[in-house]
Structures are given as C-alpha cells and as structure tokens.
C-alpha cells in the first residue's frame, strides 16, 4: 500500500498521479521510439493504467510482482524511478539494467519488481516461486503476477496456477485482459469468455473486475492479498481493460476497429478517476492541470537524465553473465578484441 492507500484522499491523489505518470511516460516513449531514439521493441501500457496502479496500491512495498513485455506501467506503479527506466529504454549505462535489458526487461529485484518479461506467460511460474520462498521463510508478503489474456493460453501459466493452488501459496494472479493477444482479438484465442473462469479448474476463486476502474482493481487485489496472507491460497483476478496502442509501437493494427477505441476511451481510467475525485471535492480542474504538468516535468527530466547518461562501454557486454565469471567469456572477448580492432556496427 505504501504511499498509495486509496482509502485516503492523499493516497487517491497519489494513485491518480501514478496513472498520469504511466500515461506520460509511455506517450513520451512512443515519441522517442518514433524519432529513433529508442531501439528495439516498445510495448506501451496506455489505457491499462488502472490495472497496474489498482493492483500495486493494494500491495505492501516488500511484496513481489512479476511483469510482462508491457511492463512500464507495472514498474511505475511499483515505485520504480522514471529516470532510470528511461535510461534503460535508451540503452544507457545508468538504466536499471545498465542497458542490457531495455524496455522488455526492466527489473529491480530489491524493489520487489522481478522483471518485465519478453516471454508471454513466463511470469506466473516465477511469482509462484517467489511465493514459495515467502512461504518457506514464513514472511508476511505476497507475490503477484501480472499477465495478459494471451498468456492464459500458455501451459506454464496453468502449471503455475496448479502449483500455487495445490500448495496454498501466498500468490495473486492478475489477468490484464486488454482484448488482444499480440495481433489477434481475445475471443479468437480463447473458448472462455470470462477468463477468470480458468480458476475453477484449480479450485480457487476467480473474479472479473472492471480494469478501467482503479478502485475496482484495488479492492479485488486487496481482498486477494488478504486471502493469500490468511493462508487461503491464490486468487485469480481478471481485470477487463483495453490497449489503446498497438501490440508494439509501429504495429499497423489491421485487427482493430477505431470505433472500439473511441468507445473504450469514453471510460478512460485516468479521466474517469479524475472526474470522480473532482466530484467529491478532492481535486479541482486546476490542481489536476498542475499535477499533469508536474508529471510532464518528471518525465521530461527523465528523458534529460537518460540522454545525458553515458553509453555503456562496449566491453560491458562481457560482464554480468555469472556471479562467478566463466573464464571462457574473458578469453573469447580478449581474442575478439585483439583481432578485431575497432568493433561495433554501422547503425
């Protein structure tokens, strides 16, 4: 819960700010990608902010999460620093992963963030393992796995659910049903309509909540966390949400109907939450504008930080393979660099 207890007015504003930060961060990432400043693949979380923030606002700071290829929102919701995130997106030495991971692999294990993940469905087994460790050590924490609707078709997700259920582990599984698995609509990938019904096979509760409402996700995950901490085992929460952007930046999106985007935008998680807070007198239009411009500044500063950060040294590529390095790597590298003179491509 930390600073984001949405039972309090202060916490609600923080949740709103966190959602705005995700939106601004990813809008900016989109621009930087289009300008060629970010290499590789970028998967944006825009539209789904209520899920990450709703879930993380129901967690304690030392709880673990596993993330997905669409992980920026989870990172920010878990409290990671936008500067080091942006530096990672730009492949800089001061990024969370020293530039070795990029957008798809941002991690901060010390902060409980066990990594964005480029493999669909790989997170739930990791969360099950983290929950197993919590259980073995007798700690008062939980592990939560975010995964998409697409991952529900992956075998290892079901294995993770079965293990966590069988062992009654303190785990929470959150399906982010954003209506598309890569470039194919969800209904073409699953016979199930309510993906939370998957839970029935494992004799655990499965519930479906409005993933565009941060309060709904928060409440569901809070109950799931309580259940996990009471020793009652895992819960499967399906948050029904919508991905505004393509699967990846540059996706031509032949599978999408523009009308649908407009329909979902009417329920925008940030706009609707702001309106609710405004209606209860907790924030004014002016204050919201001010919040947005602060968030803009935060993200601008993150971009500046990232741009100013040093590039990694090319030979850093040979570091971090092992805790106890294999001599082969240094030997091969030495031979490569001795023979090759100036290395590096012509990008």
């Amino acid at each position: 819960m930390g600073t984001m207890n949405i039972e309090t007015a202060e916490g609600r504003l923080e949740a709103l700010r966190r959602m705005c930060t995700i939106r601004e961060f990813d809008d900016t990432a989109s621009e930087l990608f289009a300008d060629g400043e970010i290499p590789g693949f970028v998967h944006l979380y825009i539209g789904e902010e209520a899920v990450a923030v709703g879930a993380c606002s129901a967690l304690e700071d030392d709880d673990y999460i596993t993330s997905t290829h669409r992980g920026h929102g989870h990172c920010i919701a878990k409290g990671l620093d936008p500067e080091r995130m942006m530096a990672e997106l730009l492949g800089k030495r001061d990024g969370y992963c020293k530039g070795k991971g990029g957008s798809m692999h941002i991690a901060d294990v010390d902060a409980g963030m066990l990594g964005a993940n480029g493999i669909v469905g790989a997170g739930p087994p990791l969360a099950t393992g983290a929950a197993l460790g919590i259980d073995q050590r007798g700690e008062d924490r939980v592990a939560l796995a975010f995964f998409g609707d697409g991952a529900v078709a992956q075998g290892q997700v079901h294995e993770a659910l079965n293990l966590a259920a069988t062992w009654s582990l303190p785990a929470v599984f959150v399906i982010e049903n954003n209506q598309f698995g890569e470039g194919t609509p969800v209904e073409e990938q699953h016979h199930l309509d309510n993906l939370s019904e998957t839970a029935e096979a494992y004799d655990i509760p499965g519930i479906t909540v409005d993933g565009m409402d941060v309060t709904a996700v928060n409440e569901a995950v809070a109950e799931a966390r309580t259940r996990a901490r009471n020793g009652d085992g895992p819960t499967l929460v399906e948050a029904v949400t919508y991905r505004y952007r393509g699967h990846f930046e540059g996706d031509p999106q032949p599978y999408r109907d523009e009308e649908d985007v407009e329909e979902w935008r009417e329920r925008d998680p940030i706009e609707t939450f702001f309106q609710r807070l405004r209606d209860r007198g907790e924030i004014t239009e002016e204050e919201f504008e001010a919040m947005r411009s602060e968030v803009e500044t935060t993200v601008e500063e993150a971009v500046e930080y990232a741009r100013d950060a040093p590039e990694p040294e090319p030979e850093d590529a040979y570091e971090d393979m092992f805790a106890d390095p294999a001599p082969e790597i240094a030997q091969f590298a030495e031979r490569l660099r001795a023979d090759g003179g100036e290395r590096g491509g012509d990008r």
């Binding site: 199930l192 309509d193 309510n194 939370s196 019904e197 029935e200 509760p205 499965g206 519930i207 479906t208 909540v209 409440e219 569901a220 109950e223 799931a224 259940r227 819960t235 399906e238």
Partner: peptide, 19 residues
C-alpha cells in the same frame, strides 16, 4: 454472460455458474 463473477466469492459465500 458476465453475471456473477463478483468479489463476494472472496468476501462471502457467493456461488457462480460458469458460461
């Protein structure tokens, strides 16, 4: 199709029927 997937499965004794 969406009826009854609610949180009272966690907080109470709600029973659901699947699709």
């Amino acid at each position: 199709p969406a009826a009854g997937r609610d949180i009272r499965r966690l907080t109470g004794g709600a029973v659901v029927s699947d699709n």
